[in-house]
Amino acid sequence: MLDQLGREINLKNTPKRIVCLVPSLTELLVDLGLSDWLVGVTKFCIHPENLRKQKTIVGGTKSIHADRIAALKPDFILCNKEENTQEIVVACEQIAPVYVSDINDFDSFYSFVDDLGTLLRCKPQAEALVTAVKNRLEQFRAKMVSEPVRSVLYIIWKDPLMAAGRVTFINVLLEVCGFRNSIAEEHSRYPEVDSELLKKADYVLLSSEPFPFSEKHIAEFETQTEAQILCVDGEYFSWYGSRLLKAFDYFQDLVFQMK
Rank of each mutant, 00 (worst) to 15 (best):
H187T: 12
L51N: 02
A96P: 05
P15I: 09
A71W: 06
G40L: 05
E82A: 05
Q86K: 15
S214T: 10
T26H: 09
S195W: 10
E220M: 09
D31E: 07
I77C: 01
W239C: 02
R180E: 14
D107S: 15
C122S: 04
M162W: 04
N104S: 13
C20L: 03
G234C: 01
F140K: 03
T225A: 03
H65K: 07
P74A: 07
W239Q: 03
G60C: 00
Q252V: 09
T26F: 10
R68E: 07
I46W: 12
A91M: 13
F179W: 08
I103K: 03
E222M: 08
E215A: 12
L245Q: 04
C122P: 01
P124R: 09
L25R: 02
D194H: 11
D249G: 09
K55R: 06
A219T: 08
F179R: 05
I156T: 04
D114W: 11
P97S: 08
E175M: 07
G59V: 05
L32N: 01
E222Y: 07
G165Q: 04
P97K: 11
R166G: 07
F112H: 13
L137F: 14
S214I: 06
S208Q: 00
P212H: 09
L174F: 04
S238M: 10
K158A: 06
N10W: 10
V193L: 04
P48I: 00
M162Y: 04
L245C: 02
I77W: 02
P48Q: 00
Q257W: 06
Y250E: 04
V145D: 09
K199R: 12
Q257L: 07
S182E: 14
T85E: 03
E196V: 15
D31M: 03
C122K: 03
Y190R: 02
